[in-house]
């Protein structure tokens, strides 16, 4: 090249760098070469003056208690139905003869896996149970750390498959919501009503749905994976869906907690009714709705 400063346009204008990208390690420094004062600080060591331990403690208690309840309820294998109510832990109700334990375990691995690999719950339990870290800028108990590299934690990468299964489950769960509205008289006729259990099951499913819709993996699949919306097929609608899901995604933590509470409560409510502890109140009753089309309710049930 013959450099000539008076020329009109730069030689470098618009020319992309010639070198092809090479995949070297992110740094070429040997381990430990950049150690700061934070390395190897003992568990809990920090200059923080706030109550940093409160949040991980609350999370551990919340997750622990709800997790214990869910496990206990799943093991019961009884009192999961009350009339037209079905506990969400047992839906869809599968009872193959060869299955030795509670039917809950046939389906419960789906929500457990969905939540267990959830990007929000991972944060919560890594902090609360693994102290990895328990709070920001606080010393950790363990020396070795591999993050989500390698077995077993690389399994977190299959979050989207749990999301697929959970979406199928949601269809059954919405079926249960419809059933929770349809009550049966002693004479076998059906009527529409709203009872306490109806509301509990409806709330649980609505929140589960919001939790699923705000999933990070779903957001990625509907549009997040695109680099350029306006260059893609159906880019406009995908951008619309992506931005709406992104708005929900900002509240993923809230939906995670509320849906967990709600689903446990729905099971608890059905269980208590079934055990005769609660008396299920009826709020609204539409007695003759199915008189003209009894087949509808038969089909739904």
């Amino acid at each position: 090249m013959s450099p000539e400063p008076q020329r009109k346009l730069s030689s470098s204008a618009g020319v992309a760098p010639a070198a092809a990208p090479s995949y070297r390690p992110a740094t070429c420094t040997p381990p430990g070469a950049w150690r700061g004062a934070g390395y190897g600080q003992p568990f809990g060591a920090t200059e923080r003056t706030d109550t940093w331990w409160l949040m991980p403690l609350a999370q551990a208690l919340g997750l622990g208690l709800l997790g214990l309840y869910a496990t206990w309820a799943a093991f019961q294998g009884a009192h999961y139905e009350f009339g037209n109510y079905l506990s969400p832990f047992y839906s869809p109700l599968l009872k193959p003869a060869w299955w030795p334990i509670s039917p809950a375990f046939l389906i419960l691995w789906i929500p457990a896996g969905f939540r267990g690999t959830c990007y929000y719950y991972r944060k919560a339990y890594y902090r609360a149970f693994f102290a990895d870290p328990s709070a920001c800028a606080v010393g950790e108990p363990r020396k070795g750390y591999r993050g989500e590299v390698g077995f077993p934690w690389a399994i977190q990468n299959l979050h989207r498959y749990f999301m697929y299964f959970a979406s199928i489950l949601l269809v059954f769960l919405w079926w249960d919501v419809i059933r929770a509205f349809i009550f049966t008289d002693p004479d076998g006729s059906h009527y529409l009503a709203i009872g306490g259990g109806t509301l509990a099951i409806l709330a649980s499913n609505a929140l589960l749905t919001m939790y699923s819709l705000s999933c990070h993996s779903l957001r990625h699949l509907v549009g997040g994976k695109l680099d350029c919306f306006s260059c893609a097929v159906a880019g406009g609608p995908r951008h619309g869906a992506w931005s709406r899901l992104s708005a929900l995604n900002a509240h993923h933590m809230g939906y995670a907690w509320w849906s967990l509470f709600a689903v446990c409560f729905a099971d608890f409510y059905v269980r208590m009714c079934s055990m005769g502890v609660f008396h299920d109140p009826m709020f609204v009753t539409f007695r003759h709705l199915f008189d003209y089309a009894p087949k509808i309710s038969h089909f739904l049930l």
């Binding site: 346009l9 470098s12 204008a13």
Partner: peptide, 9 residues
């Protein structure tokens, strides 16, 4: 104008 386009490139 060229310099602005260049920044974009």
């Amino acid at each position: 104008p060229d310099r602005v386009r260049e920044l974009e490139q």
